[in-house]
Design a protein around this nucleic acid. Structure first.
Ligand SMILES: Nc1ncnc2c1ncn2[C@@H]1O[C@H](COP(=O)(O)OP(=O)(O)OP(=O)(O)O)[C@@H](O)[C@H]1O
Length: 727
DNA sequence: CCCAATTAACTTTTT
DNA sequence: GTTAATTGGG
């Protein structure tokens, strides 16, 4: 049958050895994930294993979704009973069942990073420590590391009795008790509390140890200590574990990922079957040769010889841009050409090192009329209006969550400021009751009449919608949105973002509707909203993908652009502690470059800008060392001069000279003045495919400024805007 | 207590 | 250059 038919011998070995421990270590695009999906399908259809007894752990929710779809295609409807999820969502699922044993509400709230920071900040203030010395981000990092290494508050207090770390331990202690009091967990707690639960209640652990007969882990090189511990605990009964990974793609060490887990696996599990895959099915040999050449510069790695049957392929195009706008405009133009050649937008990805680089690219996409999809960045779920409404939901399911309650107590404005808040807190403390109970007794607190009425409206609202069975999730959100006065607040405000806020809320409502339709509970909805970073565009038309390299891990595209290949940007190294540390960080950057290059199947474009706007001022960076590590014979150079040439190995110097000529001193020649004629003039009403109707304000040599009735004033390039006059 | 105006922070990477 | 955070007047 075709589950095994198309697999090569080594892939087969990993699929057919279903019992015991299996570790597949292999380079990018060698079919590791494919091994996992086929293996799971094989267990079900050939070995008659029940779906419920199979666990598969992926790195991202997106990867989980993709794996679910692939397995669904192989085994059908019943695939929904397989546990396919990230470590974090698996832990949430387990904790929602059992966390009451640890004294938390099973509807616990999950914090995001900015919420964590604000809690830390409050604690630092309350302990009278300097906010400069104890920056929330730093303290949080230390606490997170501690949690990921299973260091408890008690242990940290014992280890650090003096100075800075003593205070950090104190903050840690306050932080944890605050979280517990509010029945709130942070991301690290999800795994930590699961481990604690398993340790304290072996009978709970036993349920899952018995259930998970077959355990699979994708992207194994990026698991951390605590995750490894979980794998070991869960697999202790059946001992059937299959992990796949690639040490060259380990790019999350800053988050505690520990590629030593690869070595530990061999030590800790008995009779590990090691499988190596060396045929790359994804990329052509030009791309693969480039990737291999770059990663070869890392000394701390096992040599792998990846090869591809797809010989040749066009040269890699390298563009030396004069500045950041020139770079992204060039990418946009190339995308339009590719589109003309028949390549769909959705088969094209633009990858960059840091999220902020997407902005300029977005501008270029807009002015060239290219549809795009932003992955991960401007996180929909982190928008304040979305967070506010979710905070209402949190209070509804988890009354102990005072953090969320404080967030919404004066949103929309109810006249409750710092001093009234103080009174309420004092009252609650005096009578030893919760914040919510204090609000229910607001008349006794001694605040103004106005506040009393407003707070009573709030508590009534929360109690009304606490009867969650009466409402679907979307009804609930709409109800809160309208009854709380949030809607009026937005509609009446002159906040320029009000309109987009309203739009975001309707997007939230529509994803809630999807959840309701699938019969998933409110709690499922809240969990998902806290765990996933990018909202799923259901209307994902044909659009170019803009993504960080990190977020592109495991995915593949026909055409890939890697932009911003400059020293200090990609590679980007900050605050190295020692030269050894710096070397490690550089190697991780190089692995990141390797990941980026190996996302491409057919064509690869790379670019850098000689000058770039950073922090509001112009920065000049040299081109990235990673470009120099690719053999010149694989590349084709172009520059903003319009010049371009092929390079052979014999004229490496020529290539470098050519590139260095593009020094920032040189005045970059203007783009050829386009003599594109227009059939519209200033003052005319015109139509744009995406922006709709607008009025022409200014026409210059190559661009046109239009005031659109729906999206406001935009400057577009005449050549690409494709405007038509409306009579 | 609220809003507008001024000032500071931001740019790694994510579950 | 943009956005969040803080400050001070109403
Ligand atoms: N035996 C095979 N024959 C043909 N194509 C294959 C085979 N195995 C995998 N592929 C294809 O190769 C591509 C890469 O596979 P896959 O994503 O599983 O690789 P991977 O090793 O997980 O990559 P990465 O390390 O980048 O995550 C996919 O398009 C997949 O369909």
């Amino acid at each position: 049958m075709n589950l095994v038919q198309n697999m090569n011998d080594n892939q087969l070995k990993a699929i057919l050895k279903t019992e015991g421990a299996v570790m597949v270590i292999a380079g990018a695009g060698s079919g590791k994930t494919r091994v996992l999906t086929n293996r799971i399908a094989y267990l079900i259809s050939e070995k008659n294993i029940l779906e419920n007894n199979i666990l598969a752990i992926t790195f991202t929710n997106k990867a989980a979704k993709e794996m679910k779809e692939r397995i669904y295609a192989l085994v059908g409807e019943t695939s929904k009973y397989i546990w396919i999820n990230t470590f974090h969502s698996m832990c949430v699922r387990i904790l929602r069942q059992h966390i009451e044993l640890l004294g938390y509400n099973k509807n616990f709230t999950i914090l995001d990073t900015s919420e964590q920071k604000s809690i830390i900040k409050n604690i630092v203030r309350s302990l009278d420590l300097s906010e400069d010395a104890y920056q929330p981000a730093n303290v949080l990092k230390i606490i997170s590391n501690a949690k990921n290494s299973l260091v408890s508050v008690k242990k940290m207090r014992e280890q650090s009795r003096f100075g800075f770390m003593k205070n950090v331990a104190e903050i840690y202690a306050h932080y944890q008790s605050y979280l517990k009091k509010n029945s709130v967990l942070d991301f690290d707690d999800l795994m930590l509390k699961t481990i604690v639960l398993f340790k304290k209640f072996p009978e709970v652990l036993a349920i899952y140890q018995n259930q998970f007969q077959y355990i699979h882990v994708d992207e194994y090189q990026d698991t951390n200590v605590i995750q490894y511990r979980l794998i070991k605990m869960l697999s202790a009964v059946h001992k059937n574990v299959c992990v796949v990974g690639d040490d060259d793609q380990s790019i999350y060490s800053w988050r505690g990922a520990c590629s030593d887990n690869i070595i530990n696996f061999e030590k800790d599990f008995d009779d590990v079957e090691l499988v190596f895959l060396d045929q790359n099915y994804r990329s052509n040999s030009t791309i693969l040769d480039a990737a291999n050449a770059v990663i070869k510069n890392n000394t701390d790695r096992k040599e792998k010889a990846l090869w591809s049957e797809n010989k040749g392929g066009g040269k890699i195009s390298v563009y030396a841009a004069s500045n950041d706008k020139d770079e992204t405009d060039d990418i946009a133009k190339k995308i339009l050409e590719l589109k003309k050649e028949g390549i769909d937008y959705k088969d094209i990805a633009i990858l960059y090192r840091a999220n902020y680089l997407s902005r300029q690219m977005e501008n270029s996409c807009l002015s060239f009329g290219i549809p795009y999809k932003l992955i991960g960045s401007l996180k929909f779920l982190q928008r304040q209006e979305v967070r506010d409404l979710l905070a209402y939901l949190n209070v509804i399911v988890n009354r102990a969550d005072e953090f969320s309650l404080r967030r919404i107590i004066n949103v929309p404005k109810r006249g409750v400021g710092a001093s009234s808040m103080d009174k309420i807190d004092k009252y609650a403390e005096q009578y030893g009751i919760s914040l919510f109970e204090a609000l229910k007794n607001i008349e006794a607190v001694g605040v103004s009449k106005k506040i009393v009425t407003n707070i009573q409206l709030l508590t009534n609202l929360i109690e009304k919608y606490s009867e969650i069975d009466k409402y679907s999730i979307d009804e609930l959100i709409i109800g809160i949105y309208k009854d709380s006065g949030y809607e009026n607040m937005l509609k009446e405000s002159n906040d320029p973002y009000a309109e987009s806020r309203i739009e975001n809320i309707s997007e939230l409502v529509s994803s809630a509707k999807q959840f309701s339709n699938m019969n998933d509970s409110l709690i499922d909805f809240i969990s998902e909203m806290s765990l996933t970073s990018d909202s799923d565009d259901e209307n994902q038309e044909d659009a170019v993908v803009l993504s960080t390299v990190h977020a592109s891990k495991g995915l593949e595209y026909k055409v890939v652009f890697i932009m911003g290949l400059e020293e200090n940007l990609f590679p980007s190294i900050r605050d190295a502690e020692s030269s050894a540390d710096e070397k490690n960080k550089m190697e991780e950057e190089r692995r990141l470059a390797y990941v980026a290059i190996t996302r491409a199947k057919e064509r690869l474009f790379m670019s850098y800008a000689n000058r770039r706007m950073q922090f509001g001022s112009i920065k000049m960076n040299k081109r990235s060392r990673f470009l120099d590590e690719v053999p010149n014979k694989l590349m084709h150079f172009e520059s903003s001069f319009g010049g371009s040439f092929e390079s052979t190995e014999s004229n490496v110097d020529q290539a470098n000279k050519f590139i260095s000529r593009l020094s920032p001193k040189i005045k970059i020649s203007e783009k050829p003045k386009s003599s594109v004629s227009t059939n519209y003039g200033v003052g005319d009403t015109v139509l744009h495919k995406k922006f709709g109707e607008g009025k022409v304000l200014v026409i210059s040599t190559d661009s046109v400024k239009v005031e659109f009735s729906e999206v406001g004033v935009k400057t577009l390039l005449i050549e690409y805007a494709n405007l038509t006059r409306k009579d």
